[in-house]
Structure formats: C-alpha cells, structure tokens
Amino acid sequence: MDYEQGMIGRGRDALEMIFDADSIKENLIDDIQIDSEIGPGAVVGTGLLDGEKATFIANDAQAINPRFNVVYFGVIGMEEAYKMALAVYNTMEADKDKPLEQKRPLVLIVDTPGNGPGKTEEIFGMNKATGGYQLALAEARKLGHPIVAMVIGRAISGAFLCHGLQADQILALDKTFGTMIHVMPLTSIARITKIDIERLEELSKDNPVFAAGVDFFHKLGGVEEIVNKVEDMKAIIKKHIAEVREAKKAGQAEKLGPWGRGALGDERGGRVVRKKIIEKMTEEYNAVADKYLNA
C-alpha cells in the first residue's frame, strides 16, 4: 500500500486527492468570502469534482490556532466550528434560488480528535459552537444539499457528532489506514465505568454498540460504505452524492442522515431495540392523543 502511514493528519492532502487539480478555492463559496484569519484548524471552501462545484469542510491537523491553545492536531475549537458553520450557511445562500436537484454537495473530510476542551471554551460556550455547526448541516441537508462525510483518520466522540454525523451518508477509509471511530479509548472507559479492562477487551471483539472501529460502526449503520483505497475516494464520494441526490428527488430523505442510519442499524442487526421503543411509544401516544390534542 502506498499510504502505509495512513491518512491521519493529512486533511489537506485528502482535499488534493479528492478534488480536481488546482480547483480548490479556500474561504470562498462563489463570491461569498469567509474571514481567512479565523479557525486555522478548519479548511473550508469550494472545489470541483469532475467539474461539479462542491463545498468542502476539512480538519487541518497541521495548523495550530494562535489564539486558542487547545486547538492543534485537528481539534475543533470555537472559531473552527463557527467557520465550518459559516461555510454551510454560505453554501445555502449561494444556492438559494436553485431547485432541489441543483443544490451543490458538501463534502466533509473528517480527521478530528475532539472539540476544544478548556476553561475559556466553557466560559464562552464551546457547546454553542459545535451545536451551531450541526444545526447548519442539518438545515442544508433538509434543503436538498447532498452531504457526504469521508472519515480519513480520527472521528472521535463529540467531534464526530460535530463534523460527520449530520451528513446524509458517511464513508470511512478501512482500518488498515489507522482510521479510528470511537467515543473513548478502552482504558478510559474502564477507569470511568469501573469495569475490568479484560472484560471490555473481550466484549470489544464482537459487540458493535460498544466496540471501537470502523467495522463495528458499519454494522451499527453509522458508516454507509468502507473505502479500501485512497484512489477510490473521489469516485465513491461522487457515487454517494448521486445516490443521495436521487433519494432526495424521490422524496426519500428519511433513508438519509441520522434517522436513515437508525433504520440501517436495524437492518444490519446492530441497533435493534431502537425501533421497538419507537413503535411502543407511538402506540401508547396514539391511545391518548385525542385527549391531549383536544383539551
């Protein structure tokens, strides 16, 4: 394999591999400019996929944010998250007069270990920054923009929720690239839950709701497709953009995004209780709905 080192820390390289040569324009969505000074840990802008315009949003693990010392090695800080959100809002604005099938895609290149932890972050509200970006993505997805996330490195916990889990579909490089999808390392889980690490290790071999890794996430419905070669990223992303666009045109948005991943998790046998809860709650609500809606 050419990329024995994997793709961790190489968000900018991934952009070069995925988008047409010399097509990348940073901080620009059409003529709408984003302040190039803010959020160096996030790279946003426009690129071409075989001539078709797409917005990209990636982590830059090589950058440090001189104003916020928690932001390095791909951490999403407050500036980064708001910059990512602006890229999404500007994309919606640029295409506001276009019909659903012409809304441009957004490609998220995911390689992030976390949201910024820190006192300043808590005082000013890191939770709003990551939440704000997620709401922007959800809005764009519902407006018809196809959103495909490509996990090339680390997709860890809250940072993956922030940057990835609001996409229509999620792709990931296979585990030989060192791709990591998880909430927390087993050693930390053992410490916090006070469950023996041996027991956790044993379980993590075959329990998809708990174990770390791309394959388990795939079984849970959290990853749509695993990509085996970096050279294939572009073609597979394009394939999924086309698929997502078709589904939206056909009014099948329920098959996409977080809700669609729920159904997929059931289909693949990874998350089967969710559906039972949903059905039971609906049944119990229907039994009393009249009383509450006509009070």
Partner: peptide
C-alpha cells in the same frame, strides 16, 4: 453527561438523531 460509555456507539448515533429532530422542529 452525554454518551453512555457502556453502549457508546449507539449513544453517539442517538445524539445525532436528537439534533436532527431539533432542526425538524425549527
């Protein structure tokens, strides 16, 4: 405190669903 570590992957996916529903309610 957010995601339940005992079933962390399922908890993570559920969080994304809640955010999705909040946007639907907008």
């Amino acid at each position: 405190g957010g995601v339940r570590l005992h079933e962390s992957n399922a908890g993570l996916l559920a969080h994304a669903e809640v955010m999705d529903q909040i946007q639907d309610a907008r």
